[in-house]
Design a protein around this nucleic acid. Structure first.
Lengths: 108, 108
DNA sequence: CGGCAATATAACTCCGTGGTAATTTAGATG
DNA sequence: CATCTAAATTACCACGGAGTTATATTGCCG
């Protein structure tokens, strides 16, 4: 079925790794809520330093998680595709279910 | 809509981070193909060292990505839930689509 | 109970990467 | 062209975590 050669596997891992950082997830989350934001706005919303945020944005953009649009001095970032959000949703659902099970000793 | 407090965000990030490692993804992939495997079998299939693999398995199990079942000397591991596989599938689909786009200059 | 095999843990090294401060680049405006 | 702001890049430090080796645990069998 799935050959999943080492190279593809490494690429998948890299994508997961990119989302596996609180700072970057905060960026993704902010973009999800506001649709499109400039770097300056993202600095305010995420509380990250400008240089730090810029680095994270480069990483997210290189992996096509976010899109970039220049407008004069400003650069607007947005989430690139639906799957990015879907991934977060699935992971959240997993966590919530797990958390729920922790409080359910046994179904009678 | 989603409050997504810092703690939950950190947990989501942690989950993504766990999948964002080639070694652990190899484990997940092997388990996906074989349904259930012992540590020894996983050592062979993944090529990881025993101690190293054991650590990865503890991490994956702590996050409920894999289930554990003791049988005599052996411990059988398996993928814990459907979502784990779904996450990998979605990420793969994303990558394949991206890869496809790279070779499609412009649709006429 | 002694020894063996499977797995887990401990101790350690080393490299990757996140954060920050300083500098550079890009674009607008007078 | 000088200058101002937004964003990106560079250089650096510090820490976490992956890998390895050695040791400890767990359970079986004679």
């Amino acid at each position: 079925m799935s050959a999943l050669p080492d190279e593809l596997l490494a690429q998948v891992a890299e994508c997961f790794r990119l989302l596996g950082e609180p700072a970057r997830l905060r960026v993704v989350n902010a973009l999800r809520e506001h649709r499109e934001l400039t770097v300056t706005q993202l600095v305010e919303l995420t509380g990250l330093g400008q240089a730090n945020l810029s680095k994270h944005l480069q990483l997210l953009h290189a992996a096509a998680f976010v899109s970039r649009r220049r407008e004069g001095l400003y650069v607007w970032y947005a989430i690139a595709d639906r799957e990015t959000i879907e991934l977060c949703d699935v992971m959240c659902a997993r966590l919530e279910r797990e958390a729920g099970l922790k409080h359910q000793p046994s179904p009678a």
